[in-house]
Amino acid sequence: MPTNTRLETPRLILRRYELSEAQRMCDLLADGTVAALVPGWPENMTPEQMQAMIKEDHEQDEKGVASHLGIELKKTGELIGVAKLVHVVPEHKHGGFGYWIGTEYRSKGYMTEAVKAAVKHWFETFDFVRMIAHHMQGNDASGKVLLNAGFKEEGTFRKHVAHRGKYVDAIFYGILREELKY
């Protein structure tokens, strides 16, 4: 899979993120709000750990088993978040993804804009019939992004994820290729 993807939307550019952006990512994640909403997300990563993660992301992208896209704000040229296809299942023609954005950039429609562009791109690049995503019960902003991007809610898996000592429901969403209206 080519890792030189570059997608442009009115306000954003989606592109590969670099090792040199490890510190920036740490800063964006420093307030812990992503770790609070995404089960298994490591807390308080050091720039070195972040670099290791970025390297791994690149390796997966090169193998064609994932696609990690940094979200850059055109206005400032800064990285503000990530959209990542991490669950590619070629035999069943579907793929699952996740996303996050720095706290100060939320509720401005950026993730909706990014997810639409990324989903469209992934449908085109991988031979998907369907794409999926899920979030923990209570993460309404995340559900909103998916609905904004044309996804339909397909089910609630009860107590599906362990998170900070609790077992939490997971809400699953899907979109079919023919439902892509953008």
Binding site: E91, H92, K93, H94, V129, R130, I132, K152, E154, G155, T156, F157, R158, K159, F172, G174, L176
Partner: peptide, 24 residues
């Protein structure tokens, strides 16, 4: 039943829905 994953799997060359059920 907890949900219907639409066209989730390729079954004998055709995409098929998959129904998910569970018990706690």
């Amino acid at each position: 039943q907890e949900g219907v994953l639409r066209k989730h799997i390729n079954h004998r060359g055709k995409q098929s829905d998959l129904i998910v059920c569970s018990i706690l």
